[in-house]
C-alpha cells in the first residue's frame, strides 16, 4: 500500500500534528513500507470471524451512583498551562458565526 504525502497530510491533520515537508516525506515512505509488511494479513481469510476488542470476557462492571470528593480546584489550576479564576484558558474558540 502506497502512502502518499497527501494521505500523510490528511492523517496528520486528523491527528493534529504539524509536520515539516521533510517529515511528510519520511513518514510517507516509512508508513508505506510498514503497511506493505502488514499486507500479509490479507493472506489470512477472516470472513465471519468475530472481532476481539477485549482480552477478557467480562460484562457489566459498574459503580454505584455515589458522589465522592472531587479534586480541589487549586490542583486543577496548578496543572493548567494557563488559568483564570478557576477556568482553564485557551485561545478564543469560534463558535457558530455567520
Amino acid at each position: 500500500m502506497r502512502i502518499t504525502p497527501e494521505v500523510v497530510e490528511r492523517v496528520a491533520r486528523l491527528s493534529r500534528l504539524e509536520l515539516t515537508e521533510e517529515e511528510r516525506a519520511t513518514f510517507a515512505s516509512q508508513l508505506s513500507s510498514i503497511l506493505e509488511y502488514f499486507a500479509r494479513l490479507d493472506r489470512l481469510p477472516t470472513e465471519g470471524v468475530e472481532p476481539t476488542s477485549h482480552a477478557i470476557r467480562v460484562t457489566n462492571v459498574f459503580r454505584p451512583d455515589q458522589v465522592v470528593p472531587s479534586l480541589p480546584v487549586e490542583a486543577v489550576v496548578a496543572m493548567a498551562p494557563q488559568a483564570h479564576e478557576g477556568f482553564v484558558v485557551v485561545p478564543r474558540v469560534l463558535e457558530a458565526e455567520e
Binding site: I3, V7, V8, V11, A12, L14, S15, R16, L17, E18, L19, E23, F27, Q30, L31, I34, L35
Partner: peptide, 19 residues
C-alpha cells in the same frame, strides 16, 4: 504543541493508528 511535544516514533504510531 503535539508537533513539539511528541517524538518521531510516537507521531508515526499516532498516524498509523489514525489511518
Amino acid at each position: 504543541t503535539r508537533a513539539e511535544g511528541f517524538g518521531p516514533e510516537v507521531k508515526r504510531r499516532i498516524m498509523l493508528g489514525t489511518f
